[in-house]
């Protein structure tokens, strides 16, 4: 959340935003998200094969935002009261950040099981940015 991202920059990683496509390293078997650049595990170059995970995982860290959200999130914050931001370890082993949805984030914590769903992330310059959020199981 936060830093301004142009539409072309957003578009470059649609597979990651929409389906959490990760890069599976052909050298060490580790996963890198987003699926670009060097392997985060072994630094191998040009070794990442795009792989679509199941989208299920476990919360490993969480932050709750109740005020002071970036302007593109104020409509969501007004409607929901609080936004949960989590780091999720997918069952394939890779960790991905995302927002919680369909829950009061105060009820969610480390170890809770979640499933990826696609939602409206925010709207900016009249363009809706869709992407993955996590819903508690």
């Amino acid at each position: 959340m936060g830093a301004y991202l142009s539409v072309p920059a957003w578009w470059r990683n649609l597979d990651g935003r929409y389906r959490l496509v990760v890069g599976e390293c052909q050298e060490c078997g580790g996963y890198t998200f987003p699926a670009e650049g060097a392997c985060v595990e072994c630094n191998a170059i040009d070794a990442l094969t795009p792989t679509e995970p199941e989208g299920t995982g476990t919360v490993v860290a969480q932050t709750i935002i109740e005020s002071g959200a970036p302007p593109e999130f104020t409509t969501l914050l007004d409607a929901e009261g609080a936004i949960g931001v989590v780091l999720v370890e997918l069952d394939e082993g890779v960790r991905v950040p995302g927002m919680l949805t369909d829950c009061d984030p105060h009820d969610i914590g480390r170890g809770d099981r979640v499933t990826a769903v696609v939602r409206r992330i925010y709207e900016q310059e009249g363009i809706t940015r869709y992407g993955t959020k996590f819903r508690p199981d």
Partner: peptide, 13 residues
Amino acid sequence: PGADEDAVTMAVA
């Protein structure tokens, strides 16, 4: 629908 849902997200699901 939640505030982050619309016809697109429901269709996808």
